[in-house]
């Protein structure tokens, strides 16, 4: 087995254990509600419902899905079996819609919003941070406090302010949704234009906050690298500044990839709340609806999906990181 395979297998096993724990938490926490969770949940959600037949049917669906009469171990096995078959249960709020169907309709919106936003924010943030550290002076004095301030604004706060300024006051962009509500999703210029117009504000608010956090991290890393011995040595050797800047940038950049892996969970969480502000038809908005209706299957479907995607993103980044960082490669060789 070569060094990289070993690294891969090791990481894979760790992420597998983590995944199991994430699934376990998703299973156990909602079941910690005192008493019979099904009857509590059903009584909460059927408040105001008068049709006893419907209530009974709802109750029975969830009794079967939760398998509440069986021991906890068996319940967990049923849960995992259903998961593997892609069955996340039935939604309370939108009974009898399947949670999987709801999530499937939301995923493209969330991915289309968050993936580009986080990547663009990350790249711009790193460039700005590196420039601030390199140029110093006025540039640093401006970028740094601004980045720090933006970073202290929660994602959704910036989103609300942008909604107010650009959506309500200036009326440049629509207020909510993923496309104009009178439209039916189809492939046409009008529809795509509408989607882009709705996409702009949530996209920008995620990008801005991401830039803030990343610029701070990159600035710190770059200053650290700029003060290190190899920079001084290269300068004494008379190597061109642009070349040194390249070395520094590369060295400071690598830890930022791990940084991205580690902060991706927080970013996704923040972006989800951003979606709520704009009523963007993604996972975040569904989660908000689910929480308001105490729709437990949908809540746990959302949390599970988010946890799994964050784990996957992390895993992918670590695998890529193992490829590109020579220091990790060296460590693998030594172990070998």
């Amino acid at each position: 087995m070569n060094a990289y395979t070993k690294y891969f297998v090791n990481k894979f096993l760790w992420y597998f254990v983590t995944l199991l724990i994430a699934v376990g938490l998703n299973f156990i926490l909602p079941r910690l509600i005192e008493g019979n969770p099904v009857s509590i949940i059903v009584s909460q959600m059927t408040q105001g419902m008068t049709d006893s037949d419907t209530i009974k049917r709802v109750y029975e669906t969830f009794m079967v899905e939760f398998g509440i009469d069986k021991p906890l171990g068996t319940q967990f096995l049923i849960y995992v079996k259903n998961l593997l078959m892609g069955d996340l249960g039935t939604s309370f709020g939108l009974y009898p819609k399947k949670v999987t169907d709801i999530l499937a309709s939301a995923v493209p919106w969330t991915v289309g919003l968050q993936l580009p936003a986080i990547l663009v924010g990350w790249i711009l943030g790193n460039v700005l941070g590196a420039v601030a550290a390199y140029k110093k002076g006025v540039f640093d004095k401006v970028i740094f406090p601004v980045a720090l301030f933006i970073n202290s604004i929660p994602f959704f706060t910036l989103a609300i302010i942008m909604l107010y300024v650009f959506g309500l006051t200036l009326k440049w962009f629509p207020l909510s949704g993923g496309y104009d509500f009178q439209m039916i999703p189809h492939l046409s210029f009008d529809f795509i234009f509408s989607v882009i117009r709705h996409h702009t504000l949530p996209f920008l608010s995620i990008v801005l906050v991401t830039i803030g956090g990343q610029a701070i991290g990159m600035r710190e890393m770059s200053i650290y690298e700029l003060n290190s011995d190899y920079v001084l040595y290269s300068k004494l050797l008379g190597i061109r500044d642009s070349k040194i800047a390249k070395y520094v940038f590369r060295n400071a950049m690598l830890p930022q990839i791990t940084g991205l892996a580690l902060s991706i969970g927080t970013m996704v969480g923040g972006s989800l709340i951003c979606e709520i502000v704009f009523s963007y038809p993604g996972i975040g908005t569904w989660l908000f609806t689910a929480i308001r209706q105490l729709d437990y299957p949908l809540i746990s479907g959302c949390t599970l999906l988010i946890a799994v995607s964050v784990l996957l993103a992390n895993f992918t980044l670590e695998i890529i990181y193992g490829f590109i960082d020579p220091r990790i490669k060296a460590a693998q060789m030594e172990d070998h």
């Binding site: 760790w14 927080t266 996704v268 992390n314």
Partner: peptide, 21 residues
């Protein structure tokens, strides 16, 4: 190991799950 596991699982998710319960 515990630390690494809980760094990767978004704390936001655990926060929601506990608060809901």
């Amino acid at each position: 190991a515990i630390t690494n596991i809980f760094i990767v699982i978004p704390s936001f998710i655990i926060l929601i799950l506990i608060s809901v319960s």
